[in-house]
Design a protein around this nucleic acid. Structure first.
Lengths: 210, 210, 210, 210
DNA sequence: TATGAATGAGACTTCATTCAT
DNA sequence: CATGAATGAAGTCTCATTCAT
């Protein structure tokens, strides 16, 4: 099932022709499907989201949806995969400047990234929370992101042991993961600022050797 | 299935009196149902959890489950209610000693409470996240707990404004809410200690006026 | 099943004591149950009516309801039986004066009887229409009433052959049976008068040898 | 079950052309479903009829039944609609010759129509009697048929006032509606002739100004 | 290859009926 | 005998997935 994906949504190199040859059409479809899935999963939750609605929202026939993603689980996987790439890229970008940042600046940078991925983040949360059997697949995403985040933190605080950086990265990711939930509270804006405090206090304490 | 019940409900008739037969049995049933619901909701999530499985896990006939909780939503509500009472009592107990605690001790106390309610906490998170219509009932729980937590924090740091205490309590609750997720990671124990650091650093910074 | 009824609801002679000894209490219960059943069947239809509601409306425990009527079908039977007795008595009363009536007067008398039994009539219709297996039991009621009606018609028009009187009685009963439905139309009152016309025209034509 | 279908649906593809495959199949399905529903509703009544049985009788998967009729109520509505069209057409055909008919001929014509729609009529009665909420839809059917019948009567007896024609049509429809019940009696054939007498006597009396 | 009608397992819920108290 | 909690078969409806066209 997971092996089929590489066939259906190949990460092939960007094509040379500027037009939309066969291959590119598929890429667009996949993107549209993932966008629709993001919206529907976020709105309804994993179980309540229906393949039919996701297909409809992206103007795709249900049969075509199943051609690209052979199951609902595979679709979720696809979403996770795309998110992993985007978030990874964002973290790499932060890592590039991490050494020159204060704890507060680091907190800001991470929160900014969080906001940039906001819409996807909600869908992600839904998928990660869904107690599906595909827990293993989630492990993959975790691994990818976690490594990137550890890179960020090591760059930021070169003194950290590899072990410590790993643990820190898990906790920071955990904290970031919960941010969209804060947006649902009445005091969303204030809580967002408050999370800045949480993060910077934690990072400062941890780097100091807490 | 019905014959299994006498085996599966060894906690029957704790007292020797012939009294409270009907009533007590009902109470036990409800408790068993809520326990089973806690487990199943936590394992599967709200949508994927089935009334049939919850009934089976508590050795209850499906019809009996519906006698006590006339809908899945009502069952969720029952769980929320029970959790509210337990968590509220725990917070009140902490509040009684809050003034004499350091930030680190407060973090410990809160985490201890969290551990005591661990199994229920996971189910709770699932229910609070579920995109059900009965959002009002959840709002009620939120209000109750939040007020209790604000009491704890005010007792701990009398200098806080009511507003600030409110905001802090929301954030602390938010952080605590996410703890069960950490338990799913490989480094659960270490992360738990890490959360101690997060909480105490945040509390110390916040009380200091960060 | 049907044999149990004679035990549960005996048509025993009116008791001598003026009080309410054991036997009479049962009689009251049965009457209350049948009254409640009449209302609920009429309101909801046979299938949608629930034994629980019928018990509740007559302030009877569900277990007691089942003591008197061992099944829903038996309860329906009980209602049919009571209706048969009441309608039969009414028809006998009409028969006593039938020889002195014109066709129009006969139509009036029958319609008056119909109105007197109105509330029960609606419940009856529901039960007769219900496509339950107990079709045989309905046959019984039909037989009883039909014989009475044939008596009325023979008294009214002595010239009719027994065969003809039988056929006429079936048709007249059929027409009367449908009256409650007219009450649901907007023009109920006018239709009721119209039914007078139908009946008297038919009786006159039939007696005349149509 | 799916393999049985080719056996159970011998009316498939009446034309030789490869054309109208999808569309025509849908229409056939709907017709088969309505036919099955007619039978089952007539046999069991509205409540006791199960969607599962209706699907089975038309060799349709339950899911397909729900694709065409998204609820039991919708299915009933579909039946009502189809009946309305057929009965309306029949009444219009009678109206075309009504002016040249005697009361007895009119009675015959109406009874003939009734016989032609016999099987549907029984189901109709069940649906119209059913205590469902969708009463509005039934009102619509009533209106349509009633207007057609008033047209028939006006054509038959031009002297009738519009009001009177309306009232007459309601009563005539009422009488016709009850015919299927007569078919359940032992003397069905004789009763059918008797209904001829009822109708013609009534029409004659009414036209005469009774 | 794209399409969407068809499929049927399975979810929630109701209610007639039983039986321990 | 009365009571009403307990039971579980059965009904309506949804939706992931397949496959003929």
């Amino acid at each position: 099932m997971s092996s089929q994906k590489s066939t259906a949504a190949p990460d092939a190199a960007p094509n040379a022709t500027g037009r939309t040859p066969k291959r590119a059409r598929g890429r667009q479809r996949v993107a549209a499907l993932l966008d629709a899935a993001t919206v529907v999963f976020a709105e309804k939750g994993y179980d309540a989201a229906t393949m039919t609605e996701i297909a409809a929202r992206s103007s795709t026939a249900i049969g075509s949806l199943y051609r690209f993603f052979p199951s609902k689980e595979a679709l979720a996987e696809g979403l996770l995969h795309r998110y992993g790439e985007r978030a990874g890229a964002g973290l790499d970008a932060i890592a590039a400047h991490a050494s020159a940042m204060t704890a507060a600046q680091m907190a800001d940078a991470l929160l900014d990234l969080m906001m940039a991925l906001k819409s996807e983040r909600t869908a992600l949360k839904v998928l990660m929370d869904a107690r599906v059997d595909g827990a293993n697949r989630r492990q993959y995403l975790r691994g990818v992101i976690r490594g990137r985040m550890a890179g960020v933190l090591s760059a930021h605080a070169p003194g950290l042991s590899a072990e410590r950086a790993d643990l820190l990265s898990v906790m920071v990711l955990h904290l970031m993961k919960t941010i969209p939930e804060l947006a649902e509270e009445a005091e969303a804006a204030a809580l967002f600022q408050e999370m800045r405090l949480v993060l910077s206090a934690y990072l400062a304490a941890a780097v100091a050797g807490g």
